[in-house]
Design a protein around this nucleic acid. Structure first.
Lengths: 132, 132
DNA sequence: ATTATTGCAAACAATTTGCATCGTT
DNA sequence: AACGATGCAAATTGTTTGCAATAAT
C-alpha cells in the first residue's frame, strides 16, 4: 500500500505540472492537440511532442483516462477513480460518466463463457443531449 | 421487407466485387490496408484508395461492420445482420460476435435517464482467448 | 454519351522520433 | 556532472482527395 513515489516516472518539471493543471481545467475528454492549443492560448506554451509524451505517461501512470473519439483521435481526461463508462453528446461533446454494473457483469460472464481471460471492456454511449 | 436494390449506391464493378469477395474470405476484422495487401497477394490488385472508398461505402450500406482496433485503425468485417458486439482476442485477433440484450437495455435506460436521444452504443470486449 | 469508378500521386491529420539543448537532481 | 525532459523539425502512419483515364449504363 505504501508508495513513496506518486508517479514513478522521471523527474518533476514545470511543464509537466502545467499540462496537468490544464487538464484539470477541463470537464470532458480532450485531445493532445486541444490541450496544446489551450496552453498556447493561456500563454503556457509547451511543445506539442511534449504534450503527447506527457499525456501518454500520465495514462500509464494511471492518472488519466483515455479513449478514442469517433474521429479516431485519442482523448484524455483526469480519471475520477472507479471504473465507469461514458455517455457523450454527439453535438456538444458533453460527457457524463455513468456506472454500468449490469455491463460489468455481462462482460465478465460473456468472456468466461467463451473461455477468454483478462477481459477488459470498452463501452461508449453516444447520443444527443437534451440541449439539442 | 422488399428491397430490390441490395446496395443502392452507384454502379456495380468487378473491383468492388473483388473487395467484397476478399472480405468474405476473412473471419475477423481487417483494416483497409490488410484487405489491400491480401488482394495484391492474390493478384487481384486494386488501388488502396479504392479499397478505402469501397469499404466506407459498404459500411454505410450496412454490409460491413467496422470498429477501431486498439491501435486506432479502422477495421472491417462482413456483418451478419442483427445488432451485436464483439469479443476480440488481443493475441490472435480472433473475433466472436456476442449478443448483449442486457447491454442494449441498459444503454437505452441510461441514455433516457440523462435525457439523451438517438443513442447508439459501442461495446468492445477484449481479452485473451483460450488458445493463449 | 453520360456519369460513376479507379488509380496514382499529392495532400492531410494525428502521432512519433531523432537529436541537440536545457532543467533537475 | 549525469541523465531525464523539452522543443523543433523531420519522419511515420493511416486515411483522404484532386484529377485524368476508364468502365458501366
Amino acid at each position: 500500500m505504501t508508495d513513496p513515489t506518486p508517479t514513478p516516472r522521471g523527474r518533476t518539471s514545470a511543464k509537466r505540472a502545467a499540462i496537468a493543471e490544464t487538464l484539470a481545467g477541463f470537464e470532458d475528454f480532450r485531445s493532445a492537440q486541444d490541450v496544446h492549443e489551450e496552453m498556447r492560448r493561456a500563454d503556457r506554451r509547451v511543445g506539442l511532442a511534449t504534450v503527447y509524451r506527457t499525456l501518454q505517461a500520465m495514462v500509464e501512470g494511471g492518472e488519466l483516462d483515455s479513449l478514442r473519439s469517433e474521429t479516431g483521435e485519442v482523448t484524455y481526461r483526469l480519471c475520477s477513480g472507479s471504473h465507469h463508462h461514458h455517455l457523450v453528446c454527439r453535438v456538444c461533446g458533453k460527457a457524463l460518466e455513468v456506472e454500468g454494473p449490469a455491463v460489468e457483469t455481462w462482460a465478465a460472464a460473456t468472456a468466461e463463457a467463451h473461455g477468454f481471460r483478462d477481459i477488459s471492456h470498452t463501452v461508449e454511449l453516444v447520443g444527443t443531449c437534451s440541449d439539442h
